[in-house]
Amino acid sequence: MSETLTAPAASDRRARWGVIGYFVATGAALGTWTSRIPAIKQDLGLDDGQVTVALFAIAVGSVLAMQVVGHLADRYGSARVLGPAGLAMAASLLVPGYAGSLPVLVGGLVLFGAGHGVVDVAMNAHAMQVQRRYSRPIVITFHALFSVGGLIGSGVGAVAAQLSLPVPLHFTLAAIALALLVTTSHRRLLPAEPHEAAERSRARGMSPAILLLGVLAFSCSLGEGSMADWSPLYLHDELRTSPAIAAIGYAVFSTMMAICRFLGDHLVARFGPVVLVRTCGLIAGVGMGAGLLAHNPVAAIIGFALFGIGLSCIIPQVFSAAGSRDPARAGRDLAQVSTLGYGGLLAGPVVIGVITHWTDLTTALLIPAALALVVALAAPIVRPRPAEG
């Protein structure tokens, strides 16, 4: 108990702000790119299929980078990885910004995805290092601030689009701002803590516990990806709402997820991660399932809101559990879980589309609700454990 009441050292508070800077920067970088997709599509004369190829390039870059960054973060320390990785992520915006053809755009987005993936894993590993210093939950708030960064990036991008600011100029200014933010943030991080044991455990594959955590990340990310693409279509096509009402579903889902993440650390401190994940899984599964089965626009929107509330704290707790099981290989464990989570994000829209083709959209969207109930059943896997020797 005395450890919980001890105030964090000044260096730990600075490191917390440093990690916050990286989470905001990563969200802002992604928001900057997504906000100008329509302009880039028009400038390059791309069709929807070519845009899909470009978007897939980001995923390819991220997944490939995640296979390498975990070992680097474990071997040399997450702080040493974040320095060059943050600058690379900022600079990689310039390639798609100045791209004059689809091949250049795809190559640039592979680099952007790689930079984003490296920073994602390394900053989560460093977040776990800072949380251990604090001896209380602080990780969920970091994820909330990633969402804030996304809103900042997309909001500035919307203004830039409204002002008809050329994409190259916009992305150049954004890259400079991001470079300044990550440089300032990096100076606040904790000193690098390389783990010699990481080299000796290099050959060890994915443990059953990490695999299960990865399955939970996949399940939640599948639901999140499904909401982005299919919730507007469900409201518009299945329930015959107007386009304006159809857009509300995902907005409510995203807003509730972001808001609840700011409350998550207090909830996990009070109730513990197992109770929080189990409760969140039940809220997500039962809430969305009931909303869909009611076959009513108001009920569906409430269901989407409950789904956002439920998913809000699960992924951060899954990452926290993965990063704390063995500090000597936290980077690789996080990379493995992140890769599976990213797979769920990509697979979600496709899975829902395939099931819809054979049944209907209501039945298809019950799949993410059912997976949330599976997450609730598997909640004990996030229980804190002593580091594995």
Rank of each mutant, 00 (worst) to 15 (best):
L5K: 12
W17K: 01
L44Y: 12
L46V: 06
Q50C: 15
I58L: 13
L64I: 07
L64N: 08
L72K: 04
A85E: 02
G86F: 01
A90V: 12
L94R: 02
A99D: 05
H116Q: 07
V121D: 03
V130Y: 00
R132I: 00
Y134W: 05
I138E: 04
V139F: 03
V148K: 08
G150K: 03
L165A: 07
L173V: 10
T183S: 11
A197S: 15
A198T: 08
I210V: 12
L216G: 09
F218P: 02
C220V: 10
G225E: 00
S226T: 08
A228Y: 09
W230H: 02
L233Y: 02
S242D: 08
A244W: 10
I245F: 11
R261L: 05
L263K: 11
G272W: 05
P273D: 14
C280K: 02
A284C: 14
G287A: 05
G291Y: 00
H295T: 12
P297H: 12
A300I: 10
A300K: 08
I301N: 12
A305Y: 02
L306E: 07
G310N: 14
S324A: 09
G331S: 08
A335Y: 00
G341I: 08
G341F: 03
P349L: 09
V350L: 13
L361M: 14
A364G: 04
A369K: 01
A378R: 01
P386L: 10
